[in-house]
Design a protein around this nucleic acid. Sequence first.
DNA 1: CCTTTAATAGCACGATCTTGCCAAAAAGAA
DNA 2: TTCTTTTTGGCAAGATCGTGCTATTAAAGG
Lengths: 203, 203
Amino acid sequence: MPKIVDPDERRREVAEAVFRVVARDGLAQVSLRTVAAEAGLAIGSVRHYCGSYDELMALAFQTLVDAVDERFAVHRGRLGETASGSPERRRLVEDMLAEFLPLDEQRHRETAVWLAFSGAARTDGNLTPYVRRMSEGMRMVVRRILEGCVRSGRTPELDLALETDRLCALLDGLALTVITAPSAISPARTLAVLRRHLDTLAI
Amino acid sequence: MPKIVDPDERRREVAEAVFRVVARDGLAQVSLRTVAAEAGLAIGSVRHYCGSYDELMALAFQTLVDAVDERFAVHRGRLGETASGSPERRRLVEDMLAEFLPLDEQRHRETAVWLAFSGAARTDGNLTPYVRRMSEGMRMVVRRILEGCVRSGRTPELDLALETDRLCALLDGLALTVITAPSAISPARTLAVLRRHLDTLAI
DNA sequence: CCTTTAATAGCACGATCTTGCCAAAAAGAA
DNA sequence: TTCTTTTTGGCAAGATCGTGCTATTAAAGG
């Protein structure tokens, strides 16, 4: 038998190569050739593990969604352990929501890729499920956080669904601005805007 | 001499063909051939008026920015005429800000194109000035509106710069969500979120 | 009518892309 | 060592793209 390779690990490596190309050169520059070169593999190897171009795209998006999901599972657990009204709660909420913002290099890259894929998904039906999952995952987290606030009795009159939509839109908008018009808002300011919004919600 | 054609009018027509292709099939499907077909022209004609591919892209983006600018000039004028604290002011502010949201088909298409171009501009230096102008134009409008609120004395303690960033982010986020994940939020709900935000600002 | 010239149409070249297909390499199993 | 099978590498076909360049068309001015 030949050199033993873990297929899933290989696929993950290729997906990360896709991320690097998208983040650096844009989605338009992604091709089997550029990705293979970025991953240090032959084009044949990439196709062996990841299939056609469309399948590679789906794999990359899937990998992105999984990575984000995994990071959130950690925060979700911590949120469950922390009392709704406690002083550390606010800090934890800030940290969780800041996960959606491109404040460091890793999240910046992640957000840029997410934005590119979301744009592509609008006219590529194969990718829409991933956008959906990503969007619903974020909505779930935000809603759960706001639910905690209502339960703690600090903001009992909150329109939960509406405020979820509003906070989600704010987070998406901040991310979009940092990625596409970084000169308009600095990372520090991004966080300040989020804090201000949480203040008005009395969280 | 040949058939007389207004070059600027032709360029506008070609730009609109670009918009249709981007909105319908995505930016990846834009090429001199597809745009020429969409415009009902020969590829040679398109090149005659719009130059190379890169110039065509810049022209299309420029046309988009101009169109949005023009629509806003009207509102800006009306805003100046209306007293800061008057009852119709709130209505006017809502209408102006709703111009940033993809609530009807025209604005939906416009927003989809804007999003696609903004994404492309991240790795295409030729397009960044247009993103910048668009972003700054919106910021200017939002800031002026909020300034009016402060001057009217209803919200004197408002942190103008911060609230401008926050409202801009909200608008961008709403637009992004409607375009990329329409199942997450309906047009009516989008407007409800904007109204809620204006309520909290006491506008 | 005829000339002139903007406008239109399109060929052809080189580059890039995906994909079907096949051969070479490599390493555990016999 | 030899067989077997996964892994790897790559060729060639078919398609699409931008662009340089040329030819044709058509209408206003003489």
